[in-house]
Amino acid sequence: MVLDMTARDRIISFDQSNGVIVVEAGALLKDIIEQTLPLGWMLPVVPGTERITVGGAIGCDVHGKNHPGAGSFGQHVLWLALLRSDGTVTQLSAGRDPDAFWATIGGMGLTGVILQAAIQLQHIETGWALRNRLRTRSLDQTVSVLRTLADRQETDPNHHAIAWLDGHASGDSLGRGIVDEFRPSTTRELPGVVPPFPERREHSTRRGRRSLPGPGLMSKATIVAASTARWHLSRSGNAQLVQLHSALCPLDRAELWPSAFGRAGLIQYQFAVPRGEVSVLRKALTFLVAHRMTPALATLKNLGFGTSGPLSFPIPGWTLAVDLPARWLHDREILRPIDKMVAAAGGRVYLAKDVLTDPSRIPTMYPRLETWRRTQARLDPAHRWTSALAERLGLLQ
Rank of each mutant, 00 (worst) to 15 (best):
T49C: 03
T357C: 15
N158F: 13
T187Q: 07
W257F: 15
Q376R: 10
T371G: 14
Q91M: 08
T136E: 06
Q75H: 06
E199S: 13
A7C: 00
P68N: 04
A169W: 14
T104V: 12
A298Q: 12
L43S: 08
P68W: 11
A382P: 08
M293I: 11
D252N: 11
E333S: 13
G216S: 15
A221S: 12
S234N: 01
L356K: 01
S259E: 08
N66Q: 05
G394F: 11
V289L: 01
Q91G: 07
V20T: 14
M365E: 07
Q16S: 12
Y366R: 12
P38D: 02
S85R: 03
S246P: 09
V54L: 01
L281G: 11
Q376W: 02
L139A: 09
L190K: 02
D323V: 09
V278N: 01
I52R: 00
S17E: 14
S279F: 10
P367V: 13
V23Q: 08
E255L: 15
I114F: 06
Q122L: 09
V242N: 06
A296I: 15
Q240H: 04
A226T: 09
V355Q: 12
L212V: 10
I315C: 08
F101Y: 15
V342H: 03
F287P: 09
Q75N: 04
V349R: 05
G48A: 08
Q35L: 13
T222V: 04
G69Y: 08
H168A: 14
L329Q: 09
E202T: 14
L78S: 13
W128L: 11
S308P: 13
L244M: 02
T357A: 12
Q376N: 04
G74N: 08
M365Y: 00
R292N: 14
A343M: 02
A100Q: 13
I338A: 06
G59Q: 07
L80S: 05
A390I: 07
D323E: 13
I105C: 12
N132P: 00
T6V: 06
T142R: 02
G276K: 13
D358W: 08
A260S: 15
L39E: 14
I223P: 04
D166N: 09
V89Q: 15
I52Y: 08
R282E: 12
I114V: 15
V322G: 03
W372G: 07
E255K: 14
V289R: 15
I119E: 03
A70V: 03
G59S: 07
R84Q: 05
H383F: 12
F261G: 10
D166F: 02
W372T: 10
I315A: 02
L320G: 00
Q397A: 09
R131E: 06
G175K: 04
L78R: 13
T6Y: 02
W231A: 01
R292K: 14
E199L: 12
G112C: 10
S236L: 00
V22P: 10
P381Q: 03
D86C: 06
T228R: 14
P295N: 06
G208V: 07
G214A: 15
V179H: 01
G175C: 05
